[in-house]
Design a protein around this nucleic acid. Structure first.
Lengths: 143, 143
DNA sequence: CCGCAAAAGTGGAACGATTCCAGAAAAGCG
DNA sequence: CGCTTTTCTGGAATCGTTCCACTTTTGCGG
């Protein structure tokens, strides 16, 4: 799989470096991780990488379309490797957990704005807010 | 309208204070403003309010459901008074301009997640990304 | 196989939005 | 009018992220 990452990097003419492979590996194993977690995971493999390197890599990969950045209101940036499939996310208001949700309607009808105010729209992002199973249990027990 | 604001504050048992009325006035006149702009606007009326007061007021009003906080990825928090009508937003990738978009389908079909992973969902937030008329013009002229 | 120019990474300082804190002021009830 | 509670002030602290100047790698060409 490392060779796969390598191919993907070359496909977008990015140089193949250890930090980049390590970041891709971390994202592949852990969906929806925040930057700090990526740094920790990467350092398990390469203890010397700077936080700056991780930020740079994440930006390079995001710009190249190899990873997707998601940033629900009030949370820090998170990254995932699933890309170009128009899937959405459920976010837990309590613990911040995130899960993937496939778009129910292929080309969702409501995702075409009724009045676009002259904007040229290229993407519709959906975030479902609620509580994850664990937090729901916690709340009902608590009361 | 100040008396209206007063009534709304009392309705949620919040004290009526000058800073709060000033913030509500500012939000009423300027939709989708960020915190810094609110501070500036409020100080035109009450030059002595601290930034902290504005943050406190915005939080109090948001918690009480009198204003809505919107925070597109990569931008600072913005606030608006339109509330409880499930409308969404178009955000310009270039200049950050925001416009309102009414939900095209009353109870949008795609807003029911296909697989909720056990989450209890209470809200679906939609953000349309694109370019505003001004930035579209700028781009086509530039090239 | 070696060297060079460009691209990446290092370490540390700087930044900006937001929050925390302790004391002062104002709101609203009796 | 006075008291209690909520709110506001002013300044310091926090946290994620970015900026900067310098060093190290990568990957191409000889």
């Amino acid at each position: 799989m490392t060779s796969d990452f390598e191919a993907r990097l070359r496909a977008v003419s990015l140089r193949v470096t250890r930090p980049r492979l390590a970041v891709m590996g971390a994202l592949g194993d852990h969906p929806h991780v925040d930057t700090d977690t990526v740094i920790t995971l990467v350092r398990e493999e390469l203890p010397t990488v700077s936080h700056q390197a991780v930020y740079d890599v994440l930006r390079a990969l995001t710009d190249a379309g190899l990873v997707r950045r998601i940033q629900p209101a009030g949370a820090t940036a998170r990254y995932e490797m699933r890309v170009r499939d128009n899937h959405h996310h459920v976010v837990c208001r309590s613990c911040g957990a995130i899960a993937d949700v496939d778009c129910s309607a292929g080309n969702a009808p409501c995702l075409t704005a009724s009045d676009d105010h002259g904007f040229v729209i290229d993407e519709a992002e959906v975030v479902y807010w609620g509580f994850c199973p664990a937090c729901v249990t916690k709340r009902s027990e608590g009361t």
